[in-house]
Design a protein around this nucleic acid. Structure first.
Lengths: 215, 215
DNA sequence: GTTCCCTTTTACCGCTTGGTCAACTTTCGC
DNA sequence: GCGAAAGTTGACCAAGCGGTAAAAGGGAAC
Protein backbone atom coordinates (compact mmCIF):
# COMPACT_ATOMS: atom_id res chain seq x y z
CA UNK A 1 0.00 0.00 0.00
CA UNK A 2 1.11 3.54 -0.68
CA UNK A 3 2.97 4.86 2.32
CA UNK A 4 1.65 8.39 2.00
CA UNK A 5 -1.89 7.14 1.87
CA UNK A 6 -1.38 5.06 4.97
CA UNK A 7 0.14 8.04 6.77
CA UNK A 8 -2.74 10.18 5.77
CA UNK A 9 -5.27 7.73 7.07
CA UNK A 10 -3.55 7.30 10.36
CA UNK A 11 -3.17 10.99 10.69
CA UNK A 12 -6.83 11.53 9.96
CA UNK A 13 -7.82 8.95 12.53
CA UNK A 14 -5.51 10.43 15.14
CA UNK A 15 -6.12 14.07 14.52
CA UNK A 16 -9.79 13.36 14.47
CA UNK A 17 -9.75 13.24 18.23
CA UNK A 18 -8.37 16.70 18.76
CA UNK A 19 -10.30 18.00 15.80
CA UNK A 20 -13.50 16.59 17.16
CA UNK A 21 -12.94 18.23 20.51
CA UNK A 22 -12.17 21.61 19.00
CA UNK A 23 -15.01 21.48 16.53
CA UNK A 24 -17.34 20.60 19.37
CA UNK A 25 -16.08 23.53 21.47
CA UNK A 26 -16.37 25.91 18.55
CA UNK A 27 -19.88 24.85 17.64
CA UNK A 28 -21.03 25.20 21.24
CA UNK A 29 -19.55 28.67 21.46
CA UNK A 30 -20.99 29.58 18.07
CA UNK A 31 -24.49 28.55 19.08
CA UNK A 32 -24.41 30.88 22.05
CA UNK A 33 -22.98 33.80 20.15
CA UNK A 34 -25.05 33.45 16.99
CA UNK A 35 -28.28 32.94 18.90
CA UNK A 36 -27.62 36.02 20.99
CA UNK A 37 -26.51 38.42 18.27
CA UNK A 38 -27.54 36.92 14.94
CA UNK A 39 -25.23 36.16 12.06
CA UNK A 40 -24.22 39.69 11.14
CA UNK A 41 -24.19 40.75 14.78
CA UNK A 42 -21.66 38.10 15.76
CA UNK A 43 -17.93 38.30 15.18
CA UNK A 44 -15.46 35.52 14.72
CA UNK A 45 -13.43 37.01 17.55
CA UNK A 46 -16.39 36.68 19.91
CA UNK A 47 -16.82 33.03 19.04
CA UNK A 48 -13.11 32.40 19.27
CA UNK A 49 -12.89 34.02 22.68
CA UNK A 50 -15.79 32.00 24.03
CA UNK A 51 -14.24 28.89 22.57
CA UNK A 52 -10.96 29.76 24.26
CA UNK A 53 -8.81 30.02 21.16
CA UNK A 54 -7.42 32.57 18.76
CA UNK A 55 -9.26 33.68 15.66
CA UNK A 56 -6.78 32.17 13.19
CA UNK A 57 -6.96 28.94 15.11
CA UNK A 58 -10.71 28.87 14.83
CA UNK A 59 -10.41 29.59 11.12
CA UNK A 60 -8.14 26.59 10.87
CA UNK A 61 -11.18 24.43 11.61
CA UNK A 62 -13.81 26.43 9.77
CA UNK A 63 -12.56 28.34 6.75
CA UNK A 64 -15.34 30.91 6.80
CA UNK A 65 -17.79 32.44 9.23
CA UNK A 66 -20.62 31.08 7.09
CA UNK A 67 -19.28 27.57 7.52
CA UNK A 68 -19.52 27.75 11.29
CA UNK A 69 -23.00 29.15 11.04
CA UNK A 70 -24.27 26.52 8.66
CA UNK A 71 -22.69 23.74 10.70
CA UNK A 72 -24.29 24.80 13.95
CA UNK A 73 -27.62 25.28 12.21
CA UNK A 74 -27.59 21.87 10.59
CA UNK A 75 -26.53 20.22 13.80
CA UNK A 76 -29.35 21.65 15.86
CA UNK A 77 -31.99 21.26 13.17
CA UNK A 78 -32.17 17.51 13.50
CA UNK A 79 -32.57 17.63 17.27
CA UNK A 80 -35.17 20.31 16.94
CA UNK A 81 -37.43 18.28 14.70
CA UNK A 82 -37.06 15.03 16.57
CA UNK A 83 -40.25 15.47 18.64
CA UNK A 84 -42.35 15.91 15.51
CA UNK A 85 -40.63 12.99 13.81
CA UNK A 86 -41.47 10.91 16.86
CA UNK A 87 -45.18 11.63 16.65
CA UNK A 88 -46.55 8.12 16.44
CA UNK A 89 -49.27 7.49 13.84
CA UNK A 90 -50.23 4.34 15.74
CA UNK A 91 -50.46 6.05 19.10
CA UNK A 92 -53.45 7.45 20.93
CA UNK A 93 -54.13 10.88 19.35
CA UNK A 94 -54.68 13.02 22.42
CA UNK A 95 -51.82 11.45 24.31
CA UNK A 96 -49.50 11.79 21.32
CA UNK A 97 -50.28 15.47 20.92
CA UNK A 98 -49.97 16.16 24.62
CA UNK A 99 -46.59 14.46 24.60
CA UNK A 100 -45.50 16.39 21.54
CA UNK A 101 -46.43 19.71 23.13
CA UNK A 102 -44.71 18.75 26.36
CA UNK A 103 -41.51 17.84 24.56
CA UNK A 104 -41.50 21.03 22.53
CA UNK A 105 -41.99 23.09 25.69
CA UNK A 106 -39.22 21.21 27.42
CA UNK A 107 -36.84 21.86 24.55
CA UNK A 108 -37.70 25.55 24.54
CA UNK A 109 -36.98 25.73 28.23
CA UNK A 110 -33.79 23.70 28.13
CA UNK A 111 -32.26 24.94 24.90
CA UNK A 112 -33.69 28.39 24.19
CA UNK A 113 -30.55 29.33 22.26
CA UNK A 114 -31.28 26.70 19.65
CA UNK A 115 -34.79 28.03 19.24
CA UNK A 116 -33.52 31.58 18.92
CA UNK A 117 -30.96 30.58 16.36
CA UNK A 118 -33.67 29.23 14.07
CA UNK A 119 -36.04 32.04 14.80
CA UNK A 120 -33.42 34.53 13.76
CA UNK A 121 -32.51 32.60 10.64
CA UNK A 122 -36.10 32.28 9.50
CA UNK A 123 -36.98 35.83 10.48
CA UNK A 124 -34.39 37.04 8.01
CA UNK A 125 -35.59 34.87 5.17
CA UNK A 126 -33.72 31.66 5.99
CA UNK A 127 -30.94 32.33 3.48
CA UNK A 128 -28.90 29.39 4.73
CA UNK A 129 -31.62 26.74 5.05
CA UNK A 130 -34.13 27.52 2.31
CA UNK A 131 -33.59 24.17 0.65
CA UNK A 132 -33.90 22.29 3.89
CA UNK A 133 -37.21 24.00 4.67
CA UNK A 134 -38.63 23.21 1.25
CA UNK A 135 -37.54 19.60 1.19
CA UNK A 136 -36.88 17.76 4.45
CA UNK A 137 -39.02 19.96 6.66
CA UNK A 138 -41.90 20.21 4.22
CA UNK A 139 -41.93 16.45 3.72
CA UNK A 140 -41.95 15.78 7.44
CA UNK A 141 -44.71 18.31 8.10
CA UNK A 142 -46.84 17.07 5.23
CA UNK A 143 -46.48 13.53 6.47
CA UNK A 144 -47.51 14.37 10.00
CA UNK A 145 -50.30 16.60 8.76
CA UNK A 146 -51.62 13.49 7.05
CA UNK A 147 -51.61 11.65 10.35
CA UNK A 148 -53.48 14.49 12.02
CA UNK A 149 -56.00 14.60 9.20
CA UNK A 150 -56.68 10.91 9.66
CA UNK A 151 -57.19 11.39 13.38
CA UNK A 152 -59.65 14.16 12.62
CA UNK A 153 -61.52 12.02 10.11
CA UNK A 154 -61.76 9.33 12.75
CA UNK A 155 -63.21 11.93 15.14
CA UNK A 156 -60.39 11.35 17.58
CA UNK A 157 -59.63 15.07 17.69
CA UNK A 158 -61.49 18.15 16.55
CA UNK A 159 -61.16 19.16 12.93
CA UNK A 160 -58.70 22.01 12.36
CA UNK A 161 -56.48 22.50 9.36
CA UNK A 162 -53.60 20.20 10.34
CA UNK A 163 -50.85 22.41 8.93
CA UNK A 164 -52.13 25.34 10.91
CA UNK A 165 -52.37 23.20 13.99
CA UNK A 166 -48.70 22.33 13.68
CA UNK A 167 -47.81 25.98 13.13
CA UNK A 168 -49.74 27.00 16.22
CA UNK A 169 -48.05 24.40 18.37
CA UNK A 170 -44.68 25.59 17.13
CA UNK A 171 -45.66 29.19 17.73
CA UNK A 172 -46.97 28.67 21.23
CA UNK A 173 -44.14 26.49 22.44
CA UNK A 174 -41.22 28.35 20.87
CA UNK A 175 -42.62 31.68 21.95
CA UNK A 176 -41.32 31.06 25.45
CA UNK A 177 -37.79 30.69 24.15
CA UNK A 178 -37.76 33.28 21.39
CA UNK A 179 -39.63 35.97 23.32
CA UNK A 180 -38.19 35.10 26.69
CA UNK A 181 -37.14 38.70 27.23
CA UNK A 182 -40.69 39.89 26.79
CA UNK A 183 -42.16 37.17 28.94
CA UNK A 184 -39.67 38.00 31.67
CA UNK A 185 -40.37 41.72 31.42
CA UNK A 186 -44.07 41.10 31.95
CA UNK A 187 -43.96 38.25 34.45
CA UNK A 188 -40.97 39.41 36.45
CA UNK A 189 -38.21 37.22 37.84
CA UNK A 190 -40.76 34.55 38.60
CA UNK A 191 -40.57 33.65 34.92
CA UNK A 192 -37.38 31.71 35.54
CA UNK A 193 -38.76 29.41 38.19
CA UNK A 194 -39.73 25.80 37.75
CA UNK A 195 -43.25 26.52 38.95
CA UNK A 196 -43.67 29.08 36.19
CA UNK A 197 -42.58 26.49 33.68
CA UNK A 198 -45.19 24.11 35.03
CA UNK A 199 -47.88 26.78 34.83
CA UNK A 200 -46.83 27.40 31.25
CA UNK A 201 -47.11 23.74 30.39
CA UNK A 202 -50.50 23.59 32.07
CA UNK A 203 -51.86 26.57 30.21
CA UNK A 204 -50.56 25.60 26.78
CA UNK A 205 -51.56 21.98 27.09
CA UNK A 206 -55.01 22.69 28.46
CA UNK A 207 -55.80 25.25 25.79
CA UNK A 208 -54.74 22.98 22.96
CA UNK A 209 -56.31 19.87 24.41
CA UNK A 210 -59.59 21.61 25.13
CA UNK A 211 -59.51 23.17 21.71
CA UNK A 212 -58.93 19.77 20.15
CA UNK A 213 -61.50 17.77 22.13
CA UNK A 214 -63.64 15.96 19.59
CA UNK A 215 -67.18 17.31 19.55
CA UNK B 1 -40.10 90.81 20.05
CA UNK B 2 -36.63 89.60 19.31
CA UNK B 3 -36.19 89.45 15.57
CA UNK B 4 -33.99 86.39 15.67
CA UNK B 5 -36.49 84.52 17.75
CA UNK B 6 -39.28 85.38 15.33
CA UNK B 7 -37.15 84.27 12.41
CA UNK B 8 -36.37 81.05 14.13
CA UNK B 9 -40.00 80.33 14.78
CA UNK B 10 -41.03 81.07 11.26
CA UNK B 11 -38.19 78.98 9.97
CA UNK B 12 -39.18 76.12 12.21
CA UNK B 13 -42.76 76.27 10.99
CA UNK B 14 -41.61 76.37 7.38
CA UNK B 15 -38.89 73.80 7.54
CA UNK B 16 -41.14 71.48 9.46
CA UNK B 17 -42.90 70.57 6.27
CA UNK B 18 -39.84 69.34 4.39
CA UNK B 19 -38.44 67.82 7.54
CA UNK B 20 -41.65 65.95 8.15
CA UNK B 21 -41.62 64.56 4.65
CA UNK B 22 -38.02 63.44 4.84
CA UNK B 23 -38.36 61.96 8.30
CA UNK B 24 -41.39 60.04 7.11
CA UNK B 25 -39.52 58.72 4.07
CA UNK B 26 -36.54 57.74 6.21
CA UNK B 27 -38.62 55.95 8.81
CA UNK B 28 -40.49 54.01 6.14
CA UNK B 29 -37.25 52.96 4.52
CA UNK B 30 -35.73 52.12 7.89
CA UNK B 31 -38.62 49.87 8.84
CA UNK B 32 -38.13 47.79 5.72
CA UNK B 33 -34.39 47.56 6.05
CA UNK B 34 -34.22 46.96 9.80
CA UNK B 35 -36.99 44.36 9.72
CA UNK B 36 -35.25 42.51 6.93
CA UNK B 37 -31.69 42.52 8.24
CA UNK B 38 -31.83 43.44 11.92
CA UNK B 39 -30.03 46.35 13.52
CA UNK B 40 -26.47 45.17 13.06
CA UNK B 41 -27.26 43.71 9.68
CA UNK B 42 -28.54 46.99 8.30
CA UNK B 43 -26.36 49.82 7.07
CA UNK B 44 -27.09 53.51 6.95
CA UNK B 45 -26.27 53.44 3.26
CA UNK B 46 -28.97 50.84 2.65
CA UNK B 47 -31.57 52.94 4.39
CA UNK B 48 -30.39 56.09 2.66
CA UNK B 49 -30.58 54.43 -0.74
CA UNK B 50 -34.08 53.15 -0.15
CA UNK B 51 -35.06 56.57 1.11
CA UNK B 52 -33.60 58.13 -2.02
CA UNK B 53 -31.00 60.32 -0.37
CA UNK B 54 -27.33 60.37 0.51
CA UNK B 55 -25.99 59.04 3.78
CA UNK B 56 -24.87 62.41 5.15
CA UNK B 57 -28.22 63.84 4.25
CA UNK B 58 -29.96 61.12 6.19
CA UNK B 59 -27.65 61.76 9.11
CA UNK B 60 -28.74 65.37 8.97
CA UNK B 61 -32.17 64.22 10.16
CA UNK B 62 -31.08 61.45 12.50
CA UNK B 63 -27.70 61.96 14.12
CA UNK B 64 -27.07 58.27 14.76
CA UNK B 65 -28.12 54.91 13.42
CA UNK B 66 -29.53 54.12 16.85
CA UNK B 67 -31.78 57.16 16.66
CA UNK B 68 -33.43 55.96 13.47
CA UNK B 69 -33.88 52.54 14.95
CA UNK B 70 -35.43 53.74 18.19
CA UNK B 71 -37.71 56.14 16.33
CA UNK B 72 -39.10 53.51 14.01
CA UNK B 73 -39.53 51.11 16.92
CA UNK B 74 -41.39 53.59 19.07
CA UNK B 75 -43.58 54.63 16.20
CA UNK B 76 -44.73 51.12 15.40
CA UNK B 77 -45.06 49.99 19.00
CA UNK B 78 -48.15 52.05 19.68
CA UNK B 79 -49.95 50.76 16.59
CA UNK B 80 -48.96 47.25 17.43
CA UNK B 81 -50.56 47.28 20.86
CA UNK B 82 -53.71 49.10 19.85
CA UNK B 83 -55.78 45.92 19.39
CA UNK B 84 -55.03 44.79 22.94
CA UNK B 85 -55.68 48.27 24.30
CA UNK B 86 -59.04 48.17 22.55
CA UNK B 87 -60.11 44.95 24.24
CA UNK B 88 -63.34 46.10 25.83
CA UNK B 89 -63.92 45.02 29.46
CA UNK B 90 -67.62 45.76 29.00
CA UNK B 91 -67.93 43.75 25.79
CA UNK B 92 -69.08 40.21 25.24
CA UNK B 93 -66.08 37.98 26.12
CA UNK B 94 -66.10 35.54 23.22
CA UNK B 95 -66.81 38.23 20.65
CA UNK B 96 -64.11 40.48 22.11
CA UNK B 97 -61.51 37.75 21.97
CA UNK B 98 -62.49 36.71 18.46
CA UNK B 99 -62.21 40.30 17.35
CA UNK B 100 -58.84 40.68 19.06
CA UNK B 101 -57.47 37.60 17.34
CA UNK B 102 -58.83 38.72 13.99
CA UNK B 103 -57.22 42.13 14.32
CA UNK B 104 -53.88 40.68 15.32
CA UNK B 105 -53.95 38.33 12.35
CA UNK B 106 -54.88 41.17 10.03
CA UNK B 107 -51.98 43.26 11.29
CA UNK B 108 -49.57 40.37 10.83
CA UNK B 109 -50.76 39.94 7.27
CA UNK B 110 -50.76 43.62 6.40
CA UNK B 111 -47.64 44.78 8.19
CA UNK B 112 -45.37 41.79 8.64
CA UNK B 113 -42.30 44.04 8.68
CA UNK B 114 -43.48 45.70 11.86
CA UNK B 115 -43.93 42.33 13.50
CA UNK B 116 -40.50 41.20 12.38
CA UNK B 117 -38.91 44.37 13.66
CA UNK B 118 -40.19 43.66 17.18
CA UNK B 119 -39.49 39.99 16.97
CA UNK B 120 -35.90 40.71 16.11
CA UNK B 121 -35.53 43.31 18.84
CA UNK B 122 -36.96 41.03 21.51
CA UNK B 123 -35.11 38.00 20.23
CA UNK B 124 -31.87 39.82 20.91
CA UNK B 125 -32.81 40.88 24.41
CA UNK B 126 -34.75 44.04 23.60
CA UNK B 127 -31.81 46.35 24.37
CA UNK B 128 -33.66 49.40 23.06
CA UNK B 129 -37.08 48.85 24.62
CA UNK B 130 -36.43 47.10 27.92
CA UNK B 131 -37.99 49.92 29.89
CA UNK B 132 -41.03 50.06 27.68
CA UNK B 133 -41.62 46.34 28.10
CA UNK B 134 -41.33 46.52 31.85
CA UNK B 135 -43.55 49.56 32.27
CA UNK B 136 -46.10 50.40 29.60
CA UNK B 137 -46.42 46.93 28.14
CA UNK B 138 -46.48 45.16 31.48
CA UNK B 139 -49.14 47.53 32.80
CA UNK B 140 -51.32 47.04 29.75
CA UNK B 141 -50.99 43.27 29.84
CA UNK B 142 -51.63 43.07 33.57
CA UNK B 143 -54.72 45.20 33.17
CA UNK B 144 -56.14 43.08 30.36
CA UNK B 145 -55.20 39.91 32.20
CA UNK B 146 -57.40 41.18 34.98
CA UNK B 147 -60.28 41.53 32.57
CA UNK B 148 -59.74 37.99 31.30
CA UNK B 149 -59.58 36.69 34.85
CA UNK B 150 -62.92 38.29 35.63
CA UNK B 151 -64.47 36.74 32.54
CA UNK B 152 -63.16 33.38 33.66
CA UNK B 153 -64.54 33.83 37.16
CA UNK B 154 -67.90 34.65 35.61
CA UNK B 155 -67.65 31.42 33.59
CA UNK B 156 -67.87 33.34 30.34
CA UNK B 157 -64.73 31.66 29.06
CA UNK B 158 -62.75 28.62 30.15
CA UNK B 159 -60.19 29.11 32.90
CA UNK B 160 -56.62 29.39 31.60
CA UNK B 161 -53.87 31.49 33.09
CA UNK B 162 -54.71 34.83 31.48
CA UNK B 163 -51.12 35.92 30.94
CA UNK B 164 -50.37 32.71 29.13
CA UNK B 165 -53.51 33.11 27.09
CA UNK B 166 -52.29 36.49 25.90
CA UNK B 167 -48.86 35.09 25.14
CA UNK B 168 -50.37 32.29 23.10
CA UNK B 169 -52.53 34.64 21.09
CA UNK B 170 -49.47 36.76 20.36
CA UNK B 171 -47.47 33.71 19.44
CA UNK B 172 -50.06 32.20 17.13
CA UNK B 173 -50.93 35.40 15.33
CA UNK B 174 -47.46 36.86 14.94
CA UNK B 175 -46.07 33.53 13.85
CA UNK B 176 -47.51 34.07 10.40
CA UNK B 177 -45.54 37.29 10.01
CA UNK B 178 -42.31 36.38 11.77
CA UNK B 179 -42.01 32.89 10.32
CA UNK B 180 -43.52 33.72 6.96
CA UNK B 181 -40.53 32.22 5.19
CA UNK B 182 -41.07 28.90 6.88
CA UNK B 183 -44.81 28.92 6.33
CA UNK B 184 -44.24 29.68 2.67
CA UNK B 185 -41.62 26.96 2.32
CA UNK B 186 -44.06 24.39 3.68
CA UNK B 187 -47.31 25.61 2.15
CA UNK B 188 -45.92 26.71 -1.20
CA UNK B 189 -46.92 29.82 -3.12
CA UNK B 190 -50.50 29.33 -2.00
CA UNK B 191 -49.43 30.88 1.30
CA UNK B 192 -49.69 34.32 -0.22
CA UNK B 193 -53.28 34.05 -1.35
CA UNK B 194 -56.28 35.60 0.31
CA UNK B 195 -57.92 32.21 0.68
CA UNK B 196 -54.93 30.99 2.65
CA UNK B 197 -55.26 33.96 4.94
CA UNK B 198 -58.89 33.10 5.49
CA UNK B 199 -58.04 29.51 6.27
CA UNK B 200 -55.45 30.77 8.73
CA UNK B 201 -57.99 32.97 10.45
CA UNK B 202 -60.45 30.07 10.56
CA UNK B 203 -57.97 27.67 12.09
CA UNK B 204 -56.57 30.04 14.68
CA UNK B 205 -59.93 31.41 15.71
CA UNK B 206 -61.63 28.03 15.93
CA UNK B 207 -58.83 26.50 17.97
CA UNK B 208 -58.80 29.35 20.47
CA UNK B 209 -62.55 29.71 20.65
CA UNK B 210 -63.08 25.97 21.09
CA UNK B 211 -60.32 25.90 23.65
CA UNK B 212 -61.94 28.75 25.52
CA UNK B 213 -65.55 27.54 25.43
CA UNK B 214 -66.80 27.61 29.00
CA UNK B 215 -67.44 24.11 30.28
C1' DG C 1 -31.00 91.03 -5.12
C1' DT C 2 -29.11 90.32 -0.89
C1' DT C 3 -29.01 87.81 3.34
C1' DC C 4 -29.61 84.07 6.24
C1' DC C 5 -30.60 79.62 7.40
C1' DC C 6 -31.98 75.19 6.01
C1' DT C 7 -30.68 71.43 3.11
C1' DT C 8 -27.62 68.57 0.39
C1' DT C 9 -23.33 66.74 -1.24
C1' DT C 10 -18.30 65.55 -1.76
C1' DA C 11 -14.47 64.02 0.40
C1' DC C 12 -12.65 61.91 4.09
C1' DC C 13 -11.39 59.65 8.76
C1' DG C 14 -10.85 55.92 11.95
C1' DC C 15 -12.42 51.76 13.69
C1' DT C 16 -14.15 47.17 13.23
C1' DT C 17 -14.01 42.86 11.15
C1' DG C 18 -13.48 38.81 7.93
C1' DG C 19 -9.77 36.58 6.36
C1' DT C 20 -4.55 35.60 5.13
C1' DC C 21 0.37 34.58 5.90
C1' DA C 22 4.42 33.09 7.58
C1' DA C 23 6.54 31.47 11.38
C1' DC C 24 6.48 28.99 15.64
C1' DT C 25 5.10 25.00 18.71
C1' DT C 26 3.14 20.57 19.62
C1' DT C 27 2.02 15.92 18.57
C1' DC C 28 2.90 11.46 17.09
C1' DG C 29 4.50 7.52 14.29
C1' DC C 30 8.72 5.48 13.65
C1' DG D 1 15.02 11.26 19.72
C1' DC D 2 13.83 12.52 14.91
C1' DG D 3 11.12 14.15 11.26
C1' DA D 4 6.89 15.35 9.29
C1' DA D 5 2.46 16.69 9.78
C1' DA D 6 -1.00 18.92 12.62
C1' DG D 7 -2.03 22.64 15.39
C1' DT D 8 -1.46 27.46 16.97
C1' DT D 9 -0.52 32.33 16.93
C1' DG D 10 0.91 37.39 16.19
C1' DA D 11 1.10 40.57 12.62
C1' DC D 12 -1.13 42.26 9.00
C1' DC D 13 -4.39 43.61 5.05
C1' DA D 14 -8.41 45.24 2.58
C1' DA D 15 -13.11 46.27 2.70
C1' DG D 16 -17.10 47.94 4.92
C1' DC D 17 -19.21 50.98 7.79
C1' DG D 18 -20.56 54.72 11.22
C1' DG D 19 -19.88 59.21 11.49
C1' DT D 20 -17.65 64.14 10.54
C1' DA D 21 -16.13 68.46 8.16
C1' DA D 22 -16.67 71.82 5.13
C1' DA D 23 -18.43 73.89 1.55
C1' DA D 24 -21.96 74.31 -2.14
C1' DG D 25 -26.96 74.81 -3.35
C1' DG D 26 -31.63 76.58 -2.56
C1' DG D 27 -35.46 79.30 -1.06
C1' DA D 28 -37.99 82.62 1.59
C1' DA D 29 -38.02 87.25 4.16
C1' DC D 30 -36.73 91.81 3.62
Amino acid sequence: MDVRLRRKREAAAKSTRIQEVNRRVILDAALEVFSAYGFRGSTIDQIAERAGMSKPNLLYYFKRKQDIYVSVLEETLAQWLQPLADLDPAGEPEAELARYIARKLAMSAERPEASRLFANEILHGAPAIQKFLKSTLKDLVDEKAGVLRRWMAEKKIAAVDPHHLIFMIWAATQHYADFETQVRAIMGPEAETASFRMATADAVTSLFMNGLKPR
